[in-house]
Design a protein around this nucleic acid. Structure first.
Length: 247
DNA sequence: CGCTTTTGACCGGCGC
DNA sequence: GCGCCGGTCAAAAGCG
């Protein structure tokens, strides 16, 4: 067999006559049989080609459905984090062949001071500086596996001891949207006078560029923010005590 | 000159 | 135990 491998590369197969050039002929029956085998071989090739194509299309469809499903879950989780305080449950499935083996539920650790915000930005704006009124110092940047856009890491530098961090990354789905993840709670007064303010983990406004969210979403968003601000201030003992004592 | 940004190195958690 | 990956550090570079 050594040296015959190249015969199988292009126009031959294990059933191809060309692969066995020295095979003796035993008459018309053998010739007819060989023609039948060649025909069958051709059909099998076509079937294989069609099957491979269909498999590829099916694979693409499965990936697309999984992508949409993950996107829906992500948005639901964001909605839950913004409007609810109950833990968020996420269903995750493994990718193994046995679909019944390890479908599992796991609870996401609920972090009360982690908030995720989507910010509409100008496409031409290359930086990841979401202006929100606080001072941030960039301390790192990474390219993550699930997103070609780099993720920037910021620490709040408004106060030396403030533990708040934020991560900023363009959305993999829409590059005009920046995903900002605030982590922690500010231990200092907010910078009053700033047009865009974030208090604790609660964003007050998220516009970072001339392009603004739509009026409708901005209105409901502002209403939510006002409610959150009132709630935040009510929970702050120093604020309530100062309010009680007066100026 | 001091502050901020950049960027490669390093570390720890997690899955296999 | 090993490799991958996200997060952080810290030295160098940039900038006002």
């Amino acid at each position: 067999m050594a040296g015959s491998d190249s015969n199988f590369e292009e126009n031959s197969s294990p059933f191809d006559l060309n692969a066995y050039p020295h095979q003796p002929s035993n008459g018309s029956d053998l010739a007819a049989e060989l023609i039948r085998v060649k025909t069958e071989n051709k059909k099998l090739k076509e079937m294989l080609s069609i099957t491979v194509d269909r498999c590829g299309n099916l694979e693409n469809n499965v990936f697309e459905e999984l992508r949409k499903k993950n996107l829906r879950r992500e948005r639901e989780a964001e909605s839950n984090q913004l409007f609810h305080t109950s833990p968020v449950w996420e269903e995750s499935e493994c990718s193994c062949a046995d679909h019944h083996c390890c479908k599992k539920l796991r609870q996401i650790t609920y972090k009360p001071h982690v908030t995720r915000v989507h910010v509409k930005t100008n496409d031409s704006d290359p930086n990841l500086m979401a202006k929100d009124g606080f001072q941030w110092r960039k301390y790192g940047q990474k390219v993550t596996r699930d997103n070609p856009s780099p993720r920037a890491y910021f620490k709040c530098s408004f106060a030396p001891t403030c533990p708040v961090k934020k991560k900023v990354q363009r959305s993999a789905e829409d590059e005009s949207i920046m995903v900002v993840i605030y982590d922690g709670k500010h231990n200092h007064p907010p910078p009053f006078g700033a047009s865009n303010i974030v208090l604790g983990s609660i964003p007050y406004s998220a516009a970072s560029s001339p392009s603004q969210p739509t009026t409708q979403s901005l209105g409901s968003f502002q209403q939510l923010l006002v409610e959150r601000l009132a709630s935040f201030l009510a929970e702050d003992p120093s604020f309530t005590s100062q309010l009680a004592t007066g100026p």
